[in-house]
Nucleic acid binder design. Sequence first.
DNA 1: CTGTTAGCGCTTTCAG
DNA 2: CTGAAAGCGCTAACAG
Lengths: 335, 335
Amino acid sequence: MSEPVNIKRLAQELNISIATVSKALNDSYEISLKTKNRVWTLAKQLNYTPNPAASNLRSHKTKTIAVVIPCVANNFFSLAIKGIEEIARRYDYHVLIYQTHENSEMEVNFTNSLINGRVDGILTSISSSLYNIEYYSNLVKKVPLVFFDRVYEDLDAVKVTTDDFEIAYQATEHLIECGCKRISFLYGLEHLPAGKARLAGYREALKAHQLVDEDALIVKYHESEQVNAFNIKALMKNQKPDGVLSSIEEFVLPCYDVCRDLNIHIPNDVKLVSFSNLSTARLLNPSLTTVTQPAFEIGMEAAGSLFKILHKKDQGMDQNVVLKSTLIKRESTGF
Amino acid sequence: MSEPVNIKRLAQELNISIATVSKALNDSYEISLKTKNRVWTLAKQLNYTPNPAASNLRSHKTKTIAVVIPCVANNFFSLAIKGIEEIARRYDYHVLIYQTHENSEMEVNFTNSLINGRVDGILTSISSSLYNIEYYSNLVKKVPLVFFDRVYEDLDAVKVTTDDFEIAYQATEHLIECGCKRISFLYGLEHLPAGKARLAGYREALKAHQLVDEDALIVKYHESEQVNAFNIKALMKNQKPDGVLSSIEEFVLPCYDVCRDLNIHIPNDVKLVSFSNLSTARLLNPSLTTVTQPAFEIGMEAAGSLFKILHKKDQGMDQNVVLKSTLIKRESTGF
DNA sequence: CTGTTAGCGCTTTCAG
DNA sequence: CTGAAAGCGCTAACAG
């Protein structure tokens, strides 16, 4: 049993006080370079690492941030985490991950477990299953918080989002340019600004080109895969769209399946464009054009904003950061 | 400024001692139900949550585990994290994430930052860029550690892996059954058991079917995309394989690209099978058959093992847990 | 069943 | 420049 390597041990071995060691380790201006060097040398030699719990307790700084998101196994969120981690590492911060699985209750439970000083700040992309803005408007007062992608618009907090309206408009126009006259919209995230903006962009583009804009052309996302498939089938049969804009990735698979069943060919009979963040996009079926959000950059931006707040450098910072998505047109290369 | 809500405050308001409150909160058998109820009621009313730093410091328990992996933005690892998080939540644990980006130095830095009591245990999938078993054999003595997927075989620690040899054998046999006579192997993770086992499975299958097994048919993974593309091009031109088994996902894209350039048709001229964990596998180019690891289950299994160790329930536990991968044969459905 | 007490390892006045 | 001392919030002997 070797002695534990803590600040006390260092002090004993060097015959100086604990306070001096602490200050030396923190590179305080009060300590002579000579003493600092002695401390640093021994610390390295004994492989000293400070006890985080002790320093948190005393200093109220955890060097930790939390990321609360619906799910990590998702092309968008895993890339966003990558961006967040990248920034956190630069600041020597640790990153906690929580998955809500779109469950508002879990979301609240997780978040509540974080406001007791476990973390210095939180990055979150809210669940779409319940609108509880009261909860969040309270929360932002208690802990530094940055929202990304899935946000509440009216909240007094930093929000990093993408140009959903504009890109949905562009995507719709792309379909129109491809000759589509009757374009359907597969509607997801309807309780969130992102979803609403995508719908609005679609509608606006239809309007600008004097195309039909009927509720019957819109299919809302449902938790049940069967229901989605059923609704898409009904859409295809009854409405016979010649173009489809899917506002979320989850609609793509049932879309292909239904079309195959009905002997409808994508993209000859129906042209399909979907929001998607597949990192291996080129591996996709080459007939799918996608709208891709800059997930990695969103993560970096959100984390960067949080650190600005943590370092009190957020004076006059813009609360609404909007990054640009990309419309990736894929031609069927036929391999 | 309201008084901080801590154990002391609860004690004062209830006119009992701090110790009693602490025990009541921890549901100690020493405390009467009546007192417990008083404490619990007030705690809930004041929205009390324990300060984690303080309890860590005293109890040496952090309720936190760390996951150290090459990258989160990866279909395998993001699913594994999902599984880990699932289990952690059941035990009310928090999950820290660290990405090494295949960089051994970062890997060591991260891990070192964890052995000072920041976490109760670590789950890791080691980087393949450097073989440093000495480091890890030391580490496992200092902190509860479970390896998953990317492991060092000779380590005295729990390792959760997949049946790489068997499935590579099966995948190779599948190619043989499809009529391939000259099968190439794209070799990744060569410093790790997983990579070696995949190669061995491939070789064994060739041997069993008396097919050519030449070094010239094997292409080793290189960090540079260009080099990989160049090597694959040379392989296709000079060796003219009629089947390819890719042991990692990263080879798939250059493979398609090179073949298209050379006017080689997949799967007519060359049949391709790759290890891959694309969650949206059905969206893939339908000509790609994949070997898919049970990433989510691996995460759950690894986390489960770690908690067994943390709860000292690891007596006689098997150190080598091997889960089964699946060969997913995809037919070209032609949509 | 309840309370007293002594720290966990570190930071931070304040005194020298 | 260095050190003594207090205490962050909580837990765990030990006494009663």
